[in-house]
Nucleic acid binder design. Structure first.
Lengths: 202, 202
DNA sequence: CGGAGCCTTGAGAGCTGTCAATCCGGGTGG
DNA sequence: CCACCCGGATTGACAGCTCTCAAGGCTCCG
């Protein structure tokens, strides 16, 4: 879930063992010794907790480019099962290697903390977005949050299918398209493919 | 948003300036020099981002016991406005004091990273919960996640109003009560006040 | 040319939000 | 000591919104 700066990430995972998984194939199991953390190269993986009650709860869904199962850094065994939602490829980084690397330099550790804090911030912003019940308003606020910070123009361009954006927002893609269409109809936005221009609020 | 171990927290905030806020009163403004982070003693505070478009988006809502505005650690100025949602009291910790404290000991820094990673984990689990559309299933999965880990019995006891639990789950309290009632009707749970016993799955 | 994703729109049903009313327990002030 | 009030808990009725299912068009690529 953490995402290091690119150079650090490369260094840590460059020599790592690569593993290819079929749909539904497990990467590790709850209770296995926590020996490594992973970088997702392709596909999506799920962390699934098996409970005393006998059933399971999905804890997280990891995407390409993200670090995965970094909770293992702070535990001797994996706390969840990890399985591939779709055909996937991951690169492993042994835990001891990573701990040694960050143990060397407090600066690296601080950078890691910063990035984690930022991810936490993002996750919480996402939760706050989901408190908006109306699809149209939620979509609009998300667009506003997606504005490149610092820039004064009001243009958002998504670099992945709107399908996925909808999923992030907790909406079906149909509801998302309809919401965008409604916003465009009211003149609040102008859309061309994945590029959206917001109308300033007076 | 971070939450340090209690002793550390006490030490850091013990001498901190205390500030009392009325409903709607601002704690700081976007663009102010980031001089301190806060511990929420009472009430709830919101981080609100003012956008180039002219309107605002809520980024986070902080609760009593939580650290607040710790993003300020990594920025020279506050990125958001902070206002009290209700009458509130906070304790400040100057940023330089905090940085000095964690600069002294890498172990403290690592502990802080661990806690942040855990909060990130929790936030993402919450997001995953919200992907469950059905109120009844969402409530049930939340109960399962709320089981004290390690214990083999299936009892959850909430230490705050169910009203707030509902809010966390993104449901109205009415929908939450109805969901609980339905689960009890089907025999999936047994409830007495804020204590709930889950039925094992077969 | 054909297929696979992605995008788009329609119609209908079900679920949740909203509004409203009631009950209960605890705390407060007269 | 009692009356009152307030916040939490609970349930009913209804409207509205989103999900689901379905169908069709688009673009890119083999």
């Amino acid at each position: 879930m953490l995402r290091l700066h690119d150079k650090h990430r490369e260094a840590l995972f460059a020599r790592g063992h690569v593993r290819t998984l079929a749909r539904g194939e497990p990467l590790f199991h709850q209770g296995d010794p926590a020996a490594a953390i992973f970088l997702i190269v392709r596909g999506r993986l799920r962390l699934i907790r098996r409970l005393a009650s006998g059933d399971q709860v999905t804890i997280h869904t990891g995407r390409p480019g993200e670090m995965f199962a970094e909770g293992a850094l702070f535990s001797d065994v994996y706390q969840c099962d990890a399985v591939a939602v779709e055909p996937a490829r991951v690169r492993a980084c042994r835990k001891d290697a990573l701990l040694a690397a960050i143990g060397d330099s407090p600066a690296t550790l601080l950078a890691l903390l910063e990035r984690t804090a930022r991810l936490l911030h993002d996750a919480r912003a996402m939760l706050e977005l989901r408190n908006i019940r109306s699809a149209e308003k939620r979509i609009l606020q998300h667009l506003r949050l997606s504005l490149p910070p610092g820039s004064s123009d009001l243009i958002v361009t998504f670099d992945r299918p709107l399908l996925e954006i909808a999923e992030d927002l907790g909406l079906t893609h149909e509801a998302y398209y309809r919401g965008l269409a409604a916003l465009a109809r009211h003149g609040t936005i102008k859309r061309t493919g994945r590029t959206i221009v917001l109308r300033p609020v007076k």
